[in-house]
């Protein structure tokens, strides 16, 4: 807003100068007509001078800044969705295993780990509990079959 005052004063001064010249040149014939055109041009330049001074150099960086910002916002959303999805998959897989363990009357605690892929897939499981070798074998095979987690990635504690 600081520049506005100067701009308005500039226009008022230009208008006064133009008015005085026009008044003076009214009875000057051809010269008067030329002076009138020149004052018109001068007044137009004064009016549009802020547009001529408009700095165009920063526009490029501004565009790239907006694009980068958009990408960052999209990435945040995707990360949020992926994290939330991983949380749901992990919880559901653990609940699925615990449900089967309860069916076989096994007292277990389960911790499923997921891959970094999109969508995340269970790639490991840690089972803790006092379980007989037969039940352990039964459970291991069931996890391989149902959840696709290989025996090597199943850790029993």
């Amino acid at each position: 807003m600081d520049g506005i005052g100067g701009y308005v004063i500039g226009i008022i001064c230009a208008a006064i100068v133009c008015a005085v010249i026009n008044q003076w040149s009214e009875k000057k014939g051809t010269h008067g007509a030329i002076l009138k055109i020149l004052t018109g041009v001068f007044m137009t330049i004064t009016l549009v001078s802020p547009l001529l001074d408009f700095d165009m150099t920063g526009i490029d960086s501004r565009f790239s800044w907006i694009t980068a910002d958009a990408e960052s916002a999209v990435q945040n959303g995707q990360i949020l969705a992926k994290d939330s999805m991983a949380e749901i998959i992990k919880t559901q897989c653990e609940a699925y295993i615990l449900d089967k363990a309860a069916f076989w009357e096994l007292n277990l605690s389960v911790e499923v780990t997921l891959s970094e892929s999109d969508p995340p897939i269970p790639n490991g499981v840690e089972l803790t509990g006092n379980v007989s070798p037969y039940a352990k074998n039964q459970m291991t095979n069931w996890i391989v079959e149902e959840l696709g987690i290989s025996k090597e990635h199943q850790v029993w504690k």
Binding site: A70, A73, V74, G77, Q78
Partner: peptide, 15 residues
Amino acid sequence: TGTMAAQGGTTSSAA
């Protein structure tokens, strides 16, 4: 933008 991207609208939300 983030919620739209989470919904699958990655290109739309960025645009």
